[in-house]
Simulated scan of single mutants.
Amino acid sequence: MSDALLQIRNLTKRFETPSGTVHAVENVSFDIPRGSIMGLVGESGSGKTTLGRTLLRLIEPTSGEIRFDGTDITTLNARAMRDMRRRMQIIFQDPVSSLNPRLKVGDLIAEGLRAFRIGRGRDRRDRVAALLEEVGLSPDHMNRYPHAFSGGQRQRVGIARALALEPDFIVADESVSALDVSIQAQVLNLLLDLRARRNLTMLFIAHDLSVVNYLCDQVAVLYLGRLMEIGPTGSIQRASAHPYTRALNSAIPQPDPRAARNRTPLQGDIPSPLAPPSGCVFRTRCPHVAEYCASGRPEAHLLGGQHHSYCKRTEELYGQ
């Protein structure tokens, strides 16, 4: 029996627009083991948020399977999916716009409890107070409005709200990108603590590979809706094989400015998902592009363990 809480198979999401079909997510497959954190990294426009919200069926997939604890949730009706959502929650990127400014913090955190008729009166207030303490805030804060808090505190409120229904799985969508670096570290450590205490499984979406390296057990690299590379975090750090991943790794700041750097800057902009390049979608920006990269989707190249690269030239370039 698989230890994966979430199993994604050939997941595709396309949007029909007046200008044509947007290929947001194409044929993505991966597993997230129970109690682990999967990092999903890539530039803006790579499809990370669309993928995360599709996993929760906040956006309906075009095709593919999303198996949550053995159940393909793409087949569930609205009532069954509502019950499943108690186990699947999201932390949004913007801690300002994701919180209703007209509601007190206690009411914001209790929204899910009210929706599922969990507790009432004093019991519900005690639950909210405990959640506030768990994320590093005071129970007295439940009577304040969101504008009275800093950005980091508001994000802690968002985390408490996501935890209220005691979910098994959380999508954290760029949840620290709007915060100062010192506050980022505090929130990341909070997420690690919550994972350990609650045995949470997470998909952590980010554009900063250094943040993903710190927090996550596995990393999936997404570009224009396609997987470029996936594997254990340490392996992706030490032995990344896809040219795109290597470019992302080379952009991570080094603590010693005198240390030698082997930078691989990306040239140009990410293409439009309305007209993705044929073959390997990264080929228009790849420093190692070959003529055959324009035809046929790259297959997964096993590098060892669970580390895969989706590059036709992996073995030729790196001997792997």
Rank of each mutant, 00 (worst) to 15 (best):
R263W: 08
I109L: 11
I252T: 02
R263K: 07
M84D: 08
R127M: 08
L188P: 00
L137E: 08
D168K: 14
D123Y: 06
A24W: 02
D123E: 15
V176C: 03
P232S: 11
P146L: 04
L191F: 03
L179D: 00
L224R: 08
A300S: 11
A239C: 02
L194M: 10
A178F: 05
R226E: 04
I205V: 03
A290H: 15
A196D: 12
A300T: 05
V135C: 02
P95M: 09
R238P: 00
E43C: 09
P95A: 04
G268A: 03
P146R: 06
G47S: 03
V289N: 08
I90F: 06
P257T: 02
A130G: 05
A300L: 14
F92Y: 10
R86N: 09
E16K: 15
S97G: 10
R125V: 12
R53G: 03
A300E: 13
D94I: 12
R297V: 15
A110S: 13
A241Q: 08
Q254E: 04
G234I: 01
S150H: 13
R197W: 09
G268Q: 03
S19M: 06
G20I: 01
Y310F: 15
I66N: 15
R57Y: 12
F92G: 08
Q153V: 14
S295N: 15
L317W: 14
R127E: 15
T284V: 14
G112K: 07
D140V: 11
F68R: 10
K48P: 05
N100H: 07
L192K: 07
P287G: 15
N262D: 12
I183C: 00
R53M: 03
P298R: 05
N262V: 01
R53A: 04
Y244Q: 07
L266M: 10
S2T: 12
T264L: 09
D140M: 12
P271S: 04
R198H: 07
A80C: 08
G39M: 03
Q218P: 01
F68H: 09
R67M: 07
V212T: 05
L11N: 12
A275G: 08
G279C: 08
N213P: 00
D31P: 00
L215I: 02
Y214R: 01
S97K: 11
R114T: 15
L248W: 10
D168G: 12
I109W: 09
L165H: 07
R67Q: 02
D173R: 05
F149C: 06
D72R: 13
D256L: 13
I205W: 04
V211T: 05
G45W: 01
L131F: 05
F149H: 13
A247G: 09
D180V: 11
A259K: 07
G119F: 06
R124W: 12
R285V: 06
A4H: 10
G234N: 06
F30S: 01
G106V: 03
M228H: 04
S250T: 14
P95S: 06
E16Y: 15
G296Y: 11
S309V: 11
L137W: 00
D83V: 14
K104S: 14
R195V: 00
V289R: 13
Q218Y: 00
S250N: 10
A160Q: 06
S182I: 12
C280V: 03
D3Q: 01
